[in-house]
Design a protein around this nucleic acid. Structure first.
Length: 972
DNA sequence: TCGCTCACG
DNA sequence: ACGTACGTGAGCGAA
């Protein structure tokens, strides 16, 4: 080797050493709760959310950050020195959830399989261990040390070289916090002051007391002023009033809190860099673990092979042969069309489900390949005839439609599948060569769809109903929608068939992408595939749906929700299908004109704003706007707010405050309002007009809200403007279908308040409703203690806000903000309110107590909303859940009522063969496209059906206001 | 894809 | 002491 310049140039440079120290428990807890909405349970019933989340994070950091050194720290199981210092330390902390306890051993095994050292020191917590090691690493010349944790306490440890690495989470990108971040976040000058802040404000979750009366803001202010807790105590004389008293009295506690918040850097542990060097993982062990845990995707990603049996795709999809095996039709009744022995047709899932919370009984997770099934392609007239004959013998059949897309207005039917015995299903392809042939095929099955005595089971059956409507089929007989069944069981989860099959049947259906590919290039439709390939998929859907019904029905019965499903949700399905199918006529010409008008105003405002700002910028960008207002123009003074992502907040509330002395703020608000109207409504709606009939067809989703309300998408027709003059104008473009029709709008007046008054059994309020008084005026008279005749507009407005606030689970702070009064005054108003309406107060308390007991709230019809956080130790979360406990029964009962009314009205319109059609629901309002001549006849009947849809227990009457007009605005 | 903002009940 | 009214969906900008 010569000593030439060349060789020295290529001599290996010592790689930059990059150390990652992971805080295991903090990451595990976070991962666990991230999956709490849709728990991941493997086939052995193990909740794997925490394991998967943690491992994902670990893998991601290994792949993306390529550390040279790494270690994972765990808290020691035993008491730490902090417990000795302070007996209550972390006393509030709940026991570790069982699922996490079970996950820990797996996580440790995985870490070991990665050959990563586990760091644990008795008597110390992970943060002490990490802090100590990070410091020593820095001393030994590590230039990059990352403490991987979501925990803000670590901010005190950040230095030039030691930083916090907050892993990517719930879609947020990973984030590195350095010294500048910490100083900015805590508004301090030196990193060490983090502990002064934390010590002063305390930490409820760790039971660090802090000093009473000092929260985040005050802590920042005081530390800015006095530098440290000690400095504050030394200068206690300079404080005023209560604060001075508190600091004096709790000085000791403040110092102790600071001590508790301090991460200790003298943990007896050696820093041996060599032992933390990142090593090759034990592939075999990882494969074994991932296999056991059923982490197929992760295995594929980490181990780079298609490890494990990825979700199975059927080979070719040729259905079980048929002709030869088919005995002449002998069996009758519920028998199999092909006389398959019941052994062969093993049910896919069929385990007893568990109640309430999603559960996963033991058993391997299966796919089409693993399960005995008989799926048949019925593609001749003879086979179809025979199928129909059998269908008509059943009392319950699940069916599914295969179509060319998801949009009901434009998709064509490709096939039908049917199932009445688990494991055995039939697929009927629909001819694609002509409309007439398709129609003829559908007509063949009309006797089935018409049969009153057959329960039709489906997953999101509204879709199938709508598709079939385009072929002139109106399905009769009871419906059972498995999506809605699950919605009632677990309203705040997702209800897609694949997830349901996984969870309740331990079965992984063939993914649709296996047939038609992923979206994007080369996306096929069902119509592009030979029927034999579609058959397995289609049959499986019907099969799984039937089996889900068999699981859900007993579960619903057990918790008393079966009636709600059968009396409300299922019967509502065809009503919604009809509403969506009808659509709403939009006057696109009027929209176009209005768009131009708005654009005129917008352009003008833009000019004025640029002039005020002294430059042009993108007003629609909150980022740019914030910089202009708060940096360049220096507005806002002391009360500049930041959003949680660190940007300037520029919301309505902020700008309104600013508007008093900065004209630009008012202009921006107006600009925002008009842009919103133009882009979201005036421009967007005409584009969604269906070419075939000139109307807009929204989708009402029946399974998204946590309370039982409907929601509307594509477009959302439940948020068409009305509150402002320029917004209201848009309603003029919602018009009747033709000159022979009018729009008729029927509104419940103050349903939610009536429901609350009734549930509370409040004599005063009930009386006011009985007498038909204006409820807000009546409330104002009570709360402000003046005679009814002396209630002025301002008092009524405040009382109205209070009434709404009550329904939402009022807080003095919130009320004060909304009506722009002091907190003290708000407290007084609320107190007076509860004195005047004592049973309301009692009812609120009972609602919360009941929810604490049951862990759910329920509506008049027994609809549940689970409130599993109501006993949480996290005060914020608990408060939120308590407000839900108050609001959910009220909002949900209102939803129950209008749903009932919709069913009854729809049935009545059909029965009377009227031409009037229901076309919209907006939570407490129904809109009809009414035949002019029918208006006089239907108006009182609609009122009556709405008012009597459900009777409230204490007999508070429901009132309905009806209006008609040439457009939606006039109808009000 | 997410956060922000804002439309509705 | 904490943080602060319930429930939705859509368009936009920034990554």
């Amino acid at each position: 080797m010569t000593d030439s310049a060349e060789t020295t140039a290529v001599a290996p440079v010592a790689p930059v050493r990059k150390l990652f120290l992971l805080d295991a428990f903090a990451l595990i807890y976070r991962a666990h709760f991230a999956f709490s909405k849709n728990p991941r349970v493997n086939s052995k019933g193990l909740n794997t959310g925490a394991i998967l989340g943690f491992t994902n994070t670990l893998v991601e950091v290994l792949q993306k950050e390529k550390p040279t050194h790494i270690g994972v720290a765990f808290d020691a199981a035993k008491k730490t020195f902090r417990h000795e210092q302070f007996a209550d330390y972390k006393a509030q902390r709940q026991a570790m959830p069982e699922d996490i306890g079970l996950a820990i051993p797996y996580i440790k095994q995985i870490i070991k399989a990665f050959h990563i050292p586990i760091l644990m020191v008795e008597g110390y917590e992970a943060d002490d261990v990490i802090g100590t090691l990070a410091g020593r690493a820095e001393q030994q010349g590590f230039g990059e040390v990352y403490m991987m944790t979501p925990d803000k306490d670590y901010c005190q440890l950040v230095t030039e070289c030691v930083k916090i690495y907050r892993p990517a989470f719930m879609g947020n990108a990973a984030e590195i916090l350095d010294v500048a971040h910490v100083l900015q976040r805590f508004e301090i000058e030196r990193v060490e002051q983090v502990i002064d802040i934390l010590g002063l404000q305390g930490d409820a979750s760790d039971n660090i007391p802090g000093i009473p009366g000092i929260g985040e803001k005050t802590a920042k202010k005081l530390i800015q002023e006095y530098g440290s807790v000690e400095g504050l105590i030394a200068n206690v004389d300079k404080l005023k009033g209560k604060q001075q008293q508190n600091v004096r009295e709790f000085a000791e506690q403040g110092l102790m809190s600071k001590e508790l918040a301090t991460i200790h850097l003298n943990v007896p542990i050696e820093f041996e860099a060599d032992k933390l060097i990142l090593d090759q993982p034990d592939i075999e062990e990882l494969r074994r673990l991932f296999d056991e845990l059923e982490f197929r995707q992760l295995a594929a990603r980490v181990l780079g092979d298609g490890a494990g049996s990825a979700a199975g795709v059927t080979n070719g999809g040729t259905p079980t042969p048929r002709g030869a095996r088919r005995p002449s039709v002998a069996a009758a009744g519920q028998g199999s069309l092909f006389g398959a022995s019941s052994d062969a047709a093993v049910a896919i899932g069929a385990e007893e489900g568990r109640t309430g919370q999603v559960g996963a009984p033991a058993g391997p997770r299966r796919t089409l390949e693993d399960v005995a099934h008989q799926y048949h392609l019925m593609d001749t007239p003879e086979l179809r005839a025979e199928l129909l004959e059998f269908l008509l013998l059943q009392t319950e059949v699940s069916f599914d439609t295969e179509t060319t897309g998801l949009d009901t207005m434009t998709s064509r039917l490709v096939g039908l599948s049917f199932c009445w015995l688990p494991g055995e299903a039939y697929y009927v392809p629909v001819p694609q060569d002509s409309e007439a042939a398709a129609q003829a095929l559908v007509d063949e099955f009309r006797p089935f769809f018409d049969a009153e005595g057959i329960v039709k089971v489906g997953q999101n059956i509204k879709y199938d109903l709508t598709i079939l409507k385009h072929y002139g089929v109106e399905i009769r007989g009871p419906l059972f929608d498995t999506m809605l069944a699950h919605y009632l069981l677990e309203p705040d989860m997702r209800h897609g068939m694949d997830v349901l099959a996984e969870t309740y049947l331990h079965y992984t259906p063939v993914p649709i992408t296996a047939l038609i590919g992923a979206k994007g290039k080369n996306q096929k439709t069902m119509a592009d595939l030979p029927p034999a390939e579609v058959a397995d998929y289609a049959c499986e859907d019907a099969d799984v749906t039937l089996q889900l019904k068999h699981v859900f029905e007993p579960l619903l019965k057990e918790v008393g929700l079966l009636d709600l499903l059968n009396e409300v949700e299922n019967p509502l399905v065809p009503v919604l299908a009809a509403i969506e199918y009808e659509g709403v006529k939009i006057d696109s010409v009027a929209m176009g004109e209005y768009s131009a008008e708005l654009q005129g105003y917008i352009t003008e405002l833009e000019g004025q704003i640029y002039q005020e700002a002294g430059e042009e910028f993108n007003i629609g960008s909150p980022k740019q706007l914030g910089e202009i207002l708060f940096d360049k123009m220096d507005l806002g003074g002391k009360k500049i707010k930041k959003t949680k992502t660190g940007q300037y907040a520029t919301g309505e509330e902020i700008l309104s405050q600013l508007a008093a002395d900065a004209p630009i703020a008012g202009l921006i608000l107006e600009y925002r309002q008009l842009s919103k109207l133009r882009s979201t409504y005036v421009e967007a709606l005409p584009q969604l007009v269906c070419e075939l009939d000139g109307r807009v067809h929204t989708s009402f989703n029946q399974a998204v809200t946590a309370t039982g309300r409907l929601s509307s998408t594509n477009p959302n027709l439940q948020n068409i403007p009305i509150r402002t003059e320029k917004g209201r104008e848009i309603r003029k473009a919602f018009v009747p279908r033709d000159a022979g029709h009018l729009l008729l709008a029927a509104d419940y007046s103050q349903v939610e308040l009536r429901i609350m008054a009734d549930f509370a059994g409040d004599k005063t309020m009930i009386e006011a409703f009985r007498l038909g008084q204006d409820i807000h005026t009546s409330t104002a008279s009570k709360v402000f203690k003046v005679p009814l005749s002396e209630v002025d507009g301002e008092m009524r407005r405040k009382a109205k806000t209070v009434n709404f606030g009550i329904i939402y689970g009022i807080s003095a702070f919130g009320l004060a903000q909304r009506i722009g009064i002091g907190r003290k005054e708000a407290v007084d108003i609320i107190e007076t309110y509860f004195e005047e309406f004592p049973s309301v107060k009692q009812y609120m308390d009972e609602s919360i107590n009941r929810a604490r007991e049951l862990e759910y709230a329920e509506t008049l019809l027994g609809r549940r909303r689970y409130l599993r956080d109501i006993n949480s130790r996290n005060a914020t979360l608990r408060g939120y859940t308590e407000r839900n406990a108050i609001n959910a029964p009220i909002q949900g009962t209102a939803a129950d009522i209008i749903k009932k009314a919709m069913i009854n009205i729809h049935e009545w319109l059909v029965q009377e063969k009227l031409g009037t059609r229901m076309i919209l629901q907006v939570h407490d309002e129904l809109v009809f496209d009414a035949v002019r001549e029918e208006v006089a006849y239907i108006t009182p009947k609609i009122k009556e059906l709405m008012a009597t849809a459900l009777l409230l227990p204490h007999g508070v009457p429901l009132e309905v206001e009806v209006g008609t007009g040439e457009n939606w605005l006039q109808a009000h």
